[in-house]
Design a protein around this nucleic acid. Structure first.
Length: 601
RNA sequence: GGGGGCGUAGCUCAGUUGGUUAGAGUGACGGCCUGUCACGCCGUAGGUCGCGGGUUCGAGCCCCGUCGCUCCCGCCA
């Protein structure tokens, strides 16, 4: 007989009755009845009830075992009496009569229980991650993550993609997020950087004549965390293709995304391919964000012209962009509902407020109620009602600001809040869309200059010769330029960002020049890539869906830590491994590094 | 860097207007119990009320500071 096990703890069924078997696992639960002792033994595969009576030889040893001890139990499989079958357990028709016990590992009193589903503090969970991972939910999520990644990999390979590895120690990239730096021992004063993404490498792979590259790629960015943004590191399904248009990329990615979500949907509805395509400008108007949750039925409308009418006397909105956010059924809400939203807009959002009108039916005619209704004559109300499809019993909220993007942003946040608070979000659905036609540039208010809006490597949607001829006088044209840049969004979460790349060295130099980078500067910073583009670069493009976010959505979790095996806390510390940590003087000497600590307050 | 929330037993929490010896559930430990599967019953141990300072006759509670965790803003090409 094997030293540790003949079966797993999830394996035994009625057909094993009569066999002598050996199981190894953790004591999930111990139930001492004096006359008989039950041990629920747990391993990766499941749970088996084991039992021993006091007059049996194994009793004394079994009796010592406590929660989370590791035991090897040997004995006969017996059928449980009919009235004691546990229908909730796959192994619930049988139990193991313990004849031999071997203690493989003892456990101290637990800082957090494995059994049960109580919540406990995040730092305790992280410090004792190995215990938390034994728990059912996390164990299931991590296993799910593995299955999702296998499925993605299989789907990519089936579509003719090839997986390549790219360096982890590379050069700092001047654009984008803060890099993690790694000091060089051989080159005093110089540093490697961990890749924020294999962006330049995957483009070089295309230049190198490979096609349809993918990788489950680790990415490193030294930026602050959010619930849907891990500190430090995360994984992307990084992919790139040559000789493709935007439509080709979409056609390659949609079946993978749809397929993998469908595979693990478990009854939830997944948007069929092709996914809807929404232009960035349209998204900002209708949803107020560039990552709309399409499960939320609310659609924002522009009503600037209505408030500009001469017969509308509401001065606070004159000369401002006004967006209307319909709130279906909100007419039934108490006054406090409206006040709370207004307080939120003024406080958290830093807005002047969130006006509203409640629509009521007055003998067949729509009438407006609320503080600003008196400023709105019937024709203005009717015009807004028609544009936003509100009816009696609904309300309309207004977001107004002299700056259009601020009006849109407040409207977008209000839409999210209203959708949630009015219970309008359709659960049990994965609603995908592409956001396309992102602006190439934007005006940077703090730097007072034109800057890249998103990805500096994207190809502008503009004829080459005209683009090369652009100069400072063409500011409006430049700020109106769109790029072949696109995001995949699912349920309000940005899953992926991608682009058709700029593979023309002259256009690339010009693109950076517009953003304020001298040609020599661009030549130096992107020497590798520009140089490569001068030796025959194919048109290419790709995207990079976030693996962690995909798993989070499929697992139905709200935080990436729930789908990451060994996550860091929000301050980017690993409480279990105690990272980051001081380096020894010797290590620092070898690296020609000295710490200059900030002055303590 | 900034804002909000939280911090009381190993864990989840209660703790009245500032007033006697800070409680419950759960877990741990001991005892009893032959069919439980969140077993049940009895008992025991377990507390720097995050930390420091202040107000007060008296602080878990009020004030100031600080630390930790978390969510958000900034940031994330």
């Amino acid at each position: 007989m094997h030293a540790y096990r003949t079966h797993t703890c999830g394996q035994l069924r009625k057909e094993h009755v009569g066999q002598t078997v050996r199981l190894s696992g953790w004591v999930n639960r111990r139930r001492d009845h004096g006359g008989l002792l039950f041990i629920d033994l747990r391993d990766h595969y499941g749970l088996t009830q084991c039992v021993v009576e006091p007059d049996e030889a194994a009793f004394a040893e079994t009796d010592k075992a406590r929660s989370e001890w590791v035991l090897t139990l040997t004995g006969r499989v017996v059928a449980r009496p009919a009235e004691t079958v546990n229908a909730d357990l796959p192994t619930g028709e049988v139990e193991l009569r313990i004849e031999q016990v071997a203690v493989q590992g003892q456990a101290q009193e637990l800082p957090l229980p494995v059994f049960g589903d109580m919540t406990y503090p995040e730092d305790t969970r992280l410090k004792y991650r190995f215990l938390d991972l034994r728990r059912e939910r996390l164990h299931r999520n991590i296993t799910l993550r593995s299955k999702v990644i296998s499925s993605i990999r299989r789907r990519m390979i089936d579509q003719g993609f090839t997986e390549f590895q790219t360096p982890i120690l590379t050069a700092s990239s001047p654009e984008g997020a803060r890099d993690f730096l790694v000091p060089s021992r051989l080159h005093p004063g110089k540093f490697y950087a961990l890749p924020q993404a294999p962006q330049q490498f995957k483009q070089l792979i295309m230049v190198a004549g490979f096609d349809r590259y993918f990788q489950i790629a680790p990415c490193f960015r030294d930026e602050d965390a959010r619930a849907d943004r891990s500190p430090g590191e995360f994984y992307q399904l990084d992919l790139e293709m040559s000789f493709v248009t935007q439509d080709d990329v979409f056609a390659a990615v949609e079946p993978v995304m749809h397929g993998v979500f469908e595979e693990f949907a478990d009854g939830r509805i997944v948007s069929p391919a092709p996914f809807p395509r929404i232009a960035y400008d349209e998204s900002m108007l209708k949803y107020g964000v560039d990552k709309p949750d399409l499960r939320n039925p609310i659609v924002i409308a522009d009503v600037t012209d209505v408030f500009a009418r001469d017969d509308v006397a509401f001065k606070a909105f004159k000369g401002k962009t006004v967006r209307a956010i319909p709130a279906p059924g909100a007419g039934a809400q108490p006054r406090s509902f409206f006040d709370k939203l207004n307080d939120w807009a003024r406080g958290e959002m830093g807005a002047a407020g969130l006006g509203y009108v409640v629509f009521e039916d007055e003998s067949g005619v729509l009438a407006g109620k609320g503080p600003i209704a008196k400023f709105l004559p019937a024709e203005a109300l009717a015009a807004m009602a028609a544009r936003t499809c509100v009816k009696a019993g609904d309300a309309l909220f207004f977001s107004a600001d002299a700056k259009t993007d601020r009006a849109a942003a407040l409207a977008g946040q209000a839409r999210i809040r209203l959708g949630r608070e009015l219970g309008l979000i359709q659960e049990g659905e994965f609603k995908f869309c592409w956001i396309v036609d992102f602006p190439m540039y934007e005006w940077s208010e703090e730097e007072k200059k034109i800057d890249f809006s998103h990805n500096p490597f994207s190809m502008p949607q503009f004829p080459r010769e005209k683009f090369l001829a652009l100069d400072n006088d063409d500011r409006d044209t430049i700020l109106g330029l769109k790029a072949y840049q696109y995001d995949i969004v699912c349920n309000g979460i940005e899953l992926s960002s991608g682009a058709i790349r700029n593979h023309d060295p002259e256009v690339m130099l010009k693109a950076f020049e517009i953003a304020g980078y001298a040609r020599e500067e661009t030549e130096t910073k992107f020497a590798g890539m520009l140089n490569a583009f001068r030796y025959g670069a194919p048109p290419h493009g790709g995207t990079a869906p976030g693996i962690d976010r995909i798993v989070m959505l499929i697992a139905g979790e709200e935080n990436l830590r729930e789908v990451t095996m060994f996550p860091m806390n929000q301050q980017a510390q690993d409480l279990m491994m105690n990272a980051p940590n001081e380096a020894s003087a010797r290590q620092l000497n070898e690296l020609h590094i000295r710490s200059v600590l900030p002055e303590t307050k």
